Amino acid sequence: MKRKVELVVKSVHDIALETIEMTLMNEYVAKTAIPGQFLHLSIDGHTLRRPISIANTDDKNNEITILFKKVGDGTKQLAAHKPGMSIDALGPSGNGFSYDGNSNSVLLVGGGIGIPPLYNLGKTLRNEGINVTAVLGFQSKEYVFYESKFRELGKSYVVTNDGTYGHQGFVTSVMDQIEDFDTYYSCGPIQMLKAVTKLLHDHSGYISLEERMGCGVGACFACVIPTNNNGGYKKICKDGPVFTADEVIL
């Protein structure tokens, strides 16, 4: 259940080009967050909060890990936080990934900063004995992160747009190498999600949408998306960010 929380910064690290890993402390979030949910962070001097996916939780040590790219003044200011500083947040926010318990194997397909929530999901499913395969897409070698962590979960493929690391191309370029799976989960840019859902249309799947949000609680209609339900709309911040692959129109 989403509520206002205070997060205490434990550590901040650069893990790839323009990419920050931040570990935060909060007992409530660490014990209640599920894979696919996000934190809506307040940054001093900025009216709008920043939605950041949860990449990992450690309920024994009350830790939450987030990853984000430094792409503007807000995220650069966030990255400048030091251990011991506090961050005001709403969370855990949104609806996370669903798992029906019938799958023996899953495919995770992530692009760029859409990869972090898939790690949290993959770790959770692997702990339940589910076979996990991952396809991770990046711009180039300098942006690659968490490769070793995903390889600990199962077979993983790294793809870069320019071919400087792993396979060259897009995440769909290696799909013909993937062994059969029951369900897929994908998070990343809209164009990537369009390509993935089209290619995997005969599989059950879930997608998580990256979207710049306004209020983050479903009141401002800044992040609505059309659905296949008689022309209706859903709010990514409140009804998502996770949807079934055939639920929304990308």
Results as ranks from 00 to 15, higher is better:
156 S>W: 01
130 I>V: 15
136 L>F: 12
181 F>I: 04
135 V>W: 03
156 S>Q: 04
132 V>L: 07
111 G>W: 11
181 F>S: 07
137 G>H: 07
111 G>P: 09
145 F>V: 10
158 V>D: 07
116 P>S: 12
165 Y>K: 14
158 V>I: 15
151 R>M: 15
122 G>Q: 06
112 G>H: 13
154 G>V: 12
136 L>A: 01
141 K>N: 11
116 P>F: 11
159 V>Y: 00
178 I>P: 04
115 I>T: 12
146 Y>K: 11
156 S>G: 04
168 Q>P: 00
161 N>P: 01
159 V>N: 00
165 Y>E: 13
157 Y>P: 01
162 D>F: 06
162 D>H: 02
168 Q>W: 05
143 Y>L: 06
126 R>E: 13
109 V>D: 07
157 Y>G: 00
123 K>G: 02
163 G>F: 08
167 H>F: 15
127 N>T: 05
114 G>L: 01
173 S>R: 03
167 H>A: 13
174 V>T: 04
128 E>W: 12
118 L>A: 02
117 P>L: 11
171 V>A: 12
111 G>A: 07
153 L>A: 09
173 S>L: 01
141 K>F: 03
143 Y>N: 12
140 S>W: 11
125 L>S: 08
122 G>I: 00
124 T>M: 13
144 V>T: 02
110 G>F: 14
131 N>K: 14
144 V>G: 10
182 D>E: 01
160 T>V: 08
121 L>P: 00
168 Q>C: 03
124 T>R: 13
167 H>E: 15
126 R>L: 09
140 S>Y: 08
130 I>D: 08
142 E>L: 12
154 G>H: 11
119 Y>L: 15
178 I>F: 08
146 Y>F: 15
170 F>E: 08
149 K>M: 15
126 R>M: 08
157 Y>T: 03
131 N>I: 11
132 V>H: 05
124 T>P: 04
145 F>Q: 06
157 Y>Q: 03
